[in-house]
Amino acid sequence: MTYKLTAPLTRDAAARLRAGDSVLISGVIFSARDAAHKRFCELLDDGKPLPLPIEGSVIYYMGPSPALPGTPIGAAGPTTSYRMDAYAPRLLALGNLGMIGKGRRSREVVEAMKAAGAVYFGATGGAGALLSRCITSAEVAAWPDLGAEALMRLEVKDFPAVVVIDSLGNDLYDIGPRQYRERHGQE
């Protein structure tokens, strides 16, 4: 199935998605990677508010290249998600419903996703030039000192992704390769 999704997400929209579904995401998402996630958790440790509306949020694990003149953003593909695994469960517990990245997630993250009803999307790694075309505006939402790792608020239009792990914990990284091997008589 291909779904058109609006971000931020509703719980119903997230619950409907299944591993393997294709989605086109439009609306407002936030990009954050290693350094911004570390700061999220430092703020939470100090009992301070997060610099983004977390309820229903979609967080894109991405640090762009600089925008060329006349464009909102440079190349903007996903970074490897497991580096955010140490931080993601805390955000999921607060209402974060979608993560976009690439690569495997830890068992702790998958359990936190199931508890929260959240979804993990995969975007095509290494396709940063193409994906940047789906981002219509980009502004630094916090921590400009982090450069490419700053928290950014992005407006996206038909951003293509695939549901890799759904809110039931089904994981396309297990299912897809297994189906390939079965098709080729290896299992």
């Binding site: 991405m62 640090g63 762009p64 290249s65 060329l68 464009t71 440079g74 190349a75 903007a76 593909g77 970074t79 095509t124 790694g125 290494g126 396709a127 940063g128 030039a129 193409l130 940047s132 075309r133 490419a148 293509p160 695939v162 897809g176 390939y180 098709r183």
Partner: peptide
Amino acid sequence: DGEAARGILDTIIENYRAAGPVPICQDT
């Protein structure tokens, strides 16, 4: 031979063709 896999390779090929002056990948 997989349909989804072919789609991803199409995206990757389209991406390198689309690059310049925007880098191919943001991780330069």
